[in-house]
Amino acid sequence: MTRYRQILAWTRFTLSEYLRSGRVLIELGALIVFAYVFLRRPNTAAILDATQFFSMTAVFVLVQTIYTSSVLMSMGSRAQGYVVLARPLGRKGYLMGLFLVSVMIGIANFLLCSLIVTLINTPVRWNFVIWGAGTLPLILEIGLVAALVMLLSGLVLTSGWRLLVLGVVALASLGSADIFSKVIALDSTFGKLLSAIRTLVGIPLTPLLAGFELTTQRIYSAQSVAIILGQITLLVAVLAFSMAAFDRRDIILS
């Protein structure tokens, strides 16, 4: 319990510093522009449905989570952190607090989008069940994106490791083998090897892509449960890897 109280205090403190610094105005500004362009009803004939709402909002919220997490990681890399790290909160608690604030701001963004769309342009057949069905995987997506940004930040990984992980993510993210075939002959030994590696490293990222699809489609089946469990597993794995890496490295804040 002691450790949770310490992490909670650090999370509240970081959130309060973030809000008081005025950085949140950038998020609010972006939210207003997004709502004006994509969520308002331009004319009475234009009808928004839940799929359109979730498709647009998920992209917006996830992009904004990348921004928020990057800013928070940069705040965490400043010399102010030494005083906090000198406390019994510890390295894991420090990182967890930064992550939680990223997720909280991401969720707050999504909730505001939901509120705005409900007030100014209610989608057809809009109800709590439909909203909840898209919200659950989206919240996990926000957590995953925040965790990945944290992992790839300079605070957690050294430059060499970041390059390696980025390379793996880039390789795994290549959606089509056609891209390979234009550069490398797929039937060559090297091509086959690269393709196998791509498949292998792509497996962990599958929940991320499938989770996004589940958010927009909201069609629940046994496979959907597997996707949500996959999202949770990947989230826990990325967080654990980040904390293990941060726990072992030299901390040089500036």
């Binding site: 109280r5 310490q6 403190f13 906090v84 406390r87 019994p88 909160l89």
Partner: peptide, 9 residues
């Protein structure tokens, strides 16, 4: 806050 990071309250 610094106190709370050390679980003093």
């Amino acid at each position: 806050y610094i106190g709370k990071f050390g679980d003093e309250h």
